[in-house]
Design a binder for these strands. Structure first.
Lengths: 167, 167
DNA sequence: TTAAAACCCTATCGGTTTAGTAGGTTATAA
DNA sequence: TTATAACCTACTAAACCGATAGGGTTTTAA
């Protein structure tokens, strides 16, 4: 059919840019799940010394390499600091009680809203929907978003760390 | 740049498709979104006569064939009845005020919970998590689930139809 | 009876995201 | 200098989604 013609570099680059957009489904991704667990693990520590990735991975049953990439992105987002070399690891930059779960979820998972047209931080108009004011899905999802934001905003890393230490 | 020759038609088509995905991301599936819209459309009708798939598809900008499969599954789930032949279509079996959005979402989307270990109807133990009582993610997602259930359970098809008719 | 309208079913496809794996590089403390 | 641990890049198998295609079957009006 298409005689094996190569795709021009420019075309590949253009398409690759578009790949950046995320496509998310209803379930919480492992990335977010592990990220929250790791943060809670670090926050539940009495001392403030750096925690090694390997220790978290072992304790929380997370693939080491996968966890590495998650902690890295948490560091780049400003939640964690890191220290290289022996005795290094990751540590919290802010106090646990000041870290709301809304911001954690937004960084790890992306939009909290279930449809882009009700997203506060990632808003996008639906292509198929002519009028949001009379859209049934829009009206419903606004409510879902607000109640979720309420829960996530009402929980901090301090709260989650307490659950962990309850044991 | 493009001295390699022409870009195959198929590649252009592929890239165009990818571009479309930018506008499609979101956690709620199209199936659920369209399904809710279709139900609201039918519920907002004054008369109780069957509504044709083609009419809904046109009015709500939904692919006809895709909508067909959605309405079919809604019929099989007991939300809709159908009438074949000329003047046929789909109609609600129950009164709109008796149809909670929780049941609609469960049928179309599946579990409402964001992790299986907090799902009421689709519970599954996490393989990696030894103890739910001290799991930070579990504790958080229980709250998210309950608030979402609260919203979805508090809305019926009657409520959504009212939003639609507001126009 | 016949043809149109409408429902029903199956199969397939292209493309994306997830959840990793593998392997190497850089910085730091002892 | 050497062991340690963070950091970086590239790749992949599997699952899944939205959509399409194309054919049926059934019912009803004329």
């Amino acid at each position: 059919m298409n005689e094996k013609g190569k795709i021009p570099e420019s075309q590949i680059a253009a398409c690759s840019l578009i790949f950046l957009f995320k496509y998310l489904r209803g379930m919480l991704s492992k990335k977010t799940k592990y990220g929250i667990k790791a943060l809670a693990f670090i926050a539940s520590r009495e001392d403030k010394k750096p925690v090694q990735t390997s220790e978290i991975a072992k304790s929380e049953n997370i693939s080491l390499k996968f966890l590495e990439s998650i902690l890295l992105s948490l560091r780049k987002s400003g939640f964690l600091g890191s220290k290289k070399g022996k005795g290094g690891g990751y540590y919290l930059i802010q106090e646990p009680e000041n870290i709301k779960m809304t911001s954690v979820v937004r960084v790890l998972e992306g939009p909290i809203a279930m449809v882009p047209c009700v997203s506060l931080n990632y808003y996008e108009k639906c292509s198929d929907c002519p009028d949001e004011a009379t859209c049934s899905v829009h009206a419903l999802m606004i409510q879902v978003r607000d109640s979720t934001l309420n829960v996530l905003g009402g929980n901090t890393l301090y709260d989650l760390a307490r659950v962990k230490k309850k044991a």
